[in-house]
C-alpha cells in the first residue's frame, strides 16, 4: 500500500478544504463564530452567526418568573411558532405571530398594542430561536420592552399553567 503517497494527497486535499473553509467563513455575511452557545442550561442555543438574533440579555431563564409576570397581567405573550402549533395549544390569551407571517399580522398588532406594551415572546423551547427573532423584529417595529420566555410552550404546558387551543 503506497501509504506515503496517500498521506501526501490527503494532506493536500484536507489543507485546501480547511483553509478555504475558514477564509470563506471569515468573510461571509452568514459566517459563524468558532464556538457557539450549545448549552441549553445557559439559554437558547445559537451558532453565533454574524446575523445572530439570540440576545441572552432578553431571556427569562426561570419559568416561575414568567408565570409571575403572566399572573400580574404585566405583559402580553406573543407566540412565534407556526399557526398550526398555536391552534393546537398556546399560552392562554397569547397572540399568534409566526415569524414568517409578521408582515400580514403586524398592522393589526400595532393597532391593538401601543409601543410601550411589555411583550414576552416564546416558541417551543431552548433549542428554538424563533422567539428571539420575533423579539428583534418587534424591536424594529418600535416596541421597546421585550423579553423572551425561553422555555416556551412545552414547559408551560408541562407545568400545568393556563393554556388554550383554537377550536377547528
Amino acid at each position: 500500500m503506497p501509504i506515503k503517497d496517500i498521506a501526501k494527497e490527503l494532506a493536500l486535499l484536507l489543507l485546501l478544504a480547511v483553509i478555504t473553509a475558514f477564509v470563506v467563513n471569515f468573510y461571509s455575511s452568514k459566517g459563524i463564530a468558532l464556538t457557539g452557545d450549545w448549552d441549553t442550561a445557559q439559554g437558547v442555543i445559537t451558532a453565533k452567526a454574524k446575523d445572530n438574533v439570540v440576545n441572552h440579555g432578553l431571556e427569562i431563564q426561570d419559568i416561575r418568573i414568567a408565570k409571575e409576570i403572566y399572573d400580574g397581567k404585566e405583559a402580553i405573550f406573543v407566540d412565534a411558532r407556526a399557526y398550526e402549533d398555536y391552534k393546537d395549544g398556546h399560552i392562554k390569551r397569547a397572540v399568534s405571530m409566526p415569524i414568517n407571517q409578521l408582515e400580514e399580522r403586524i398592522v393589526k398588532f400595532i393597532a391593538n398594542y401601543p409601543a410601550d406594551t411589555y411583550i414576552i415572546t416564546y416558541c417551543s423551547g431552548r433549542e428554538c430561536d424563533d422567539s428571539h427573532e420575533l423579539a428583534q423584529l418587534l424591536f424594529e417595529e418600535g416596541y421597546t420592552t421585550i423579553s423572551v420566555f425561553i422555555d416556551g410552550y412545552p414547559a408551560w404546558e408541562g407545568k400545568g399553567y393556563p393554556i388554550e387551543s383554537v377550536k377547528h
Binding site: 486535499l13 484536507l14 485546501l16 478544504a17 480547511v18 478555504t20 473553509a21 475558514f22 470563506v24 467563513n25 459563524i32 463564530a33 468558532l34 464556538t35 457557539g36 450549545w38 448549552d39 451558532a47 453565533k48
Partner: peptide
C-alpha cells in the same frame, strides 16, 4: 459543544472539494 461550530465550518468545504 466546542466542536460543533468547527465541524459546521469545515465539513461542507470538505464535501465540496472532495
Amino acid at each position: 459543544d466546542f466542536s460543533i461550530n468547527l465541524i459546521a465550518i469545515v465539513l461542507p468545504f470538505l464535501e465540496f472539494f472532495a
